[in-house]
Simulated scan of single mutants.
Amino acid sequence: MRTLEVTINSREDVSLTVYLQDVEKEFRNITKRPAVLIIPGGGYQFCSDREADPVALAYLKAGYDAFVLRYSVGDKYKWPEPLEDYEDAIEYIESHAEEWNVLTDKIAVVGFSAGGHLAGAAATIANHKPAAVVLGYAVLNEVVDEIAQDAPRIAEHVDYDTVPCFLFASRADNVVPVKNTLDMMNALDKAGITFESHIYAFGPHGFSVGDTAIQTRESSFCERIPNWVQDSIGFLKDVMGDFYVGTAENKILTEPKCKAHMTDDGSAWLSLDCTIGRIFGNPKAKEVLIDVIAIMQKKIIPFTPEMTFGDMMECFSRMKLRDLLHERSIEIDEEKIDALLGEVPNI
Rank of each mutant, 00 (worst) to 15 (best):
V18S: 09
T31H: 14
Y64F: 15
R33D: 07
D65R: 06
A56K: 06
P40Q: 01
Y19T: 03
I38F: 01
A52N: 01
P54Q: 07
A56T: 02
C47L: 00
F27C: 02
A35Q: 06
A58L: 09
Y59L: 03
V73S: 08
V23C: 06
L20I: 11
A58T: 09
Y59W: 11
S72N: 10
D65T: 07
Y71C: 03
E51T: 00
R33C: 10
D22Y: 06
Y64H: 13
I39K: 08
A56V: 04
G41R: 03
R70K: 15
V68K: 03
D53I: 13
G41F: 02
V23R: 04
A66F: 02
L69G: 05
T31Q: 14
D65G: 12
K32G: 11
E26F: 12
T31I: 12
A52C: 01
A66Q: 07
R33L: 07
P54C: 06
R50P: 00
Y19C: 05
P34S: 08
I39L: 15
V68I: 05
Y44V: 01
K25L: 06
R28A: 13
D53R: 14
R33E: 03
A56D: 02
I30F: 02
R50Y: 11
T17S: 15
F27A: 09
K61N: 13
D22N: 13
E26H: 14
L37N: 11
L37C: 07
D65L: 03
C47W: 01
K61Y: 12
D65H: 15
R33M: 07
L20Q: 07
D53E: 15
F46K: 09
Q21C: 05
Y59H: 08
N29Q: 11
K32R: 15
N29P: 10
Q45T: 14
S48F: 05
G41V: 00
E51N: 04
Y71G: 00
V36I: 11
D22Q: 10
D53K: 15
Y19A: 04
T31P: 10
V55Q: 04
L16Q: 10
L69Q: 05
A62I: 06
N29D: 08
A52G: 14
P40T: 00
E24A: 14
L20W: 03
S72I: 07
V18L: 02
F67W: 06
A35F: 07
V23Y: 01
L57V: 14
T17Y: 12
V55F: 02
D53G: 06
V18C: 12
